[in-house]
């Protein structure tokens, strides 16, 4: 299935060059892939995986490992950030 991984702020360094100007990384993954699987597969540092959204919805830390992605899901991840 096709999903999109979005990485922002300092996590942008983990994107391939072609995705750096959009922060969007479309990819094919196996059915049943979870949020935790993608985080592990791309070796995202755990301390930088802070705000995790699937289609804009917050995924709490305890649910990330098992949260299954479905076709066309957008997984977006930020390190600890704030503003205002």
């Amino acid at each position: 299935m096709r999903v999109t991984l979005k990485l922002y702020a300092s996590l942008s360094d983990h994107l391939p060059d072609e995705a750096k100007r959009t922060n969007e990384w479309p990819m094919e993954v196996a059915d049943g892939t979870t949020v935790g699987d993608l985080i592990d597969r791309h070796q995202l540092p755990k301390r930088l995986v802070h705000l995790v959204l699937v289609n804009g919805h917050y995924i709490p830390p305890a649910s990330r490992e098992a949260h299954p992605l479905v076709e066309n899901d957008v997984l977006a991840i930020w390190p600890p950030v704030a503003g205002g």
């Binding site: 979005k6 922002y8 702020a9 301390r47 977006a76 390190p79 600890p80 950030v81 704030a82 205002g84």
Partner: peptide, 21 residues
């Protein structure tokens, strides 16, 4: 991580993509 790294590096503007998402 926010006051030591996030805000100095990206400033408040880092929220643009968060709030949009």
């Amino acid at each position: 991580a926010v006051t030591g790294q996030g805000l100095p590096t990206y400033g408040t503007q880092v929220l643009m993509n968060v709030i949009n998402e």
